[in-house]
């Protein structure tokens, strides 16, 4: 017994050593890969960029300083600018809210048909999943640009683009949520003869609703940002105002719009993270 113990220990020791060696080889390789990626990426960036990084970095504060100086010179009437651009902000929020609502509705239907525990046919599930993948993968901007060209400049193309993207993105999350629900309530309902719709209404939706709401609130926050960006390419709202004012070099207006935007986003961020946490029970 005593003679076998050191032998075992030596075995363990050797094992440990070889493990450590493999491990350090792996970490070395991954660090090397990381450095290679960063280095080659910086080369690509340096070639593609108009200004080299060393010229650009010191100029970083130029624009913010310009903006603040410009709006300081504008004087105390700057506050009124906030009021002036409020309607645009509201129209952007309206765009985001409407497209989130519509997108969520679409996503709900898509997700039901792409959940394996609700639909027996594998082909249906597969087809609906691919539809959602494609909806999700297109950046909103691409759809919006094409639609803007076809429909002319208005909020509508942006709304449609965001609806499509939201339907895809939320649909996937929703269907994962549906597939993760507890099977027992559904089986219970089935055993007392409930129809497919009733099973979904009382067996699935009741369980998955908190998750649905969580994801929807998060999406709404994302969509506000998206509809601002789409304003840049002609969808109206505060994004378009920001773009014009930057082009015209109206510093005070630019700052006012940025202020409105940032405060909206931060407020929403706080609200949504509070709601989300209380919905999934992270807040006691």
């Amino acid at each position: 017994m005593q003679s076998s113990l050191p032998e075992n220990l030596i075995k363990i020791e050797n094992n440990l050593k070889s493990l450590t060696r493999t491990r350090s080889i792996y970490s070395f390789l991954s660090i090397a890969a990381l450095i290679a990626v960063i280095y080659s990426g910086l080369i690509v960036a340096e070639t593609g960029n108009a200004t080299s990084i060393w010229v650009g970095l010191p100029k970083f504060f130029d624009y913010p300083v310009d903006l603040f100086v410009g709006s300081w010179e504008y004087g105390y009437r700057w506050n009124l600018l906030l009021l002036e651009y409020l309607p645009d902000l509201i129209s952007t929020i309206n765009m985001a809210l409407f497209s989130t609502a519509m997108g969520t509705l679409l996503a709900f239907f898509l997700s039901i048909f792409s959940s394996r525990n609700l639909i027996k046919s594998k082909t249906t599930v597969l087809i609906f999943r691919r539809i959602m993948d494609i909806c999700r993968s297109f950046p909103e901007l691409v759809i919006a640009l094409v639609l803007l060209y076809l429909l002319g400049k208005s909020a509508l193309p942006a709304v449609i683009a965001i609806i499509i993207h939201t339907a895809g993105a939320l649909g996937k999350l929703f269907s994962e949520a549906i597939e993760n629900v507890d099977k027992n309530p559904i089986e219970g309902l089935e055993s007392c003869g409930a129809s497919w719709f009733t099973r979904i209404r009382f067996g699935v939706v009741t369980q998955a609703l908190p998750l649905f709401l969580t994801y929807t609130i998060l999406r709404f926050e994302i969509n506000i940002r998206a509809s601002t960006i789409l304003g840049f390419v002609g969808a109206g709202g505060i994004g378009e105002q920001l773009y014009t004012n930057i082009q015209w070099k109206y510093e005070a207006d630019t700052i006012a719009i940025m202020f409105l935007l940032v405060s909206t986003i931060i407020t929403l961020d706080y609200l949504s993270s509070y709601w989300r946490k209380s919905l999934i029970g992270l807040k006691s």
């Binding site: 960036a45 200004t51 990084i53």
Partner: peptide, 14 residues
């Protein structure tokens, strides 16, 4: 990206 666009000009750094 607007702020960086002024500093670095069009390109990947932005």
């Amino acid at each position: 990206s607007l702020i960086f666009l002024r500093a670095f000009g069009p390109g990947p750094f932005t």
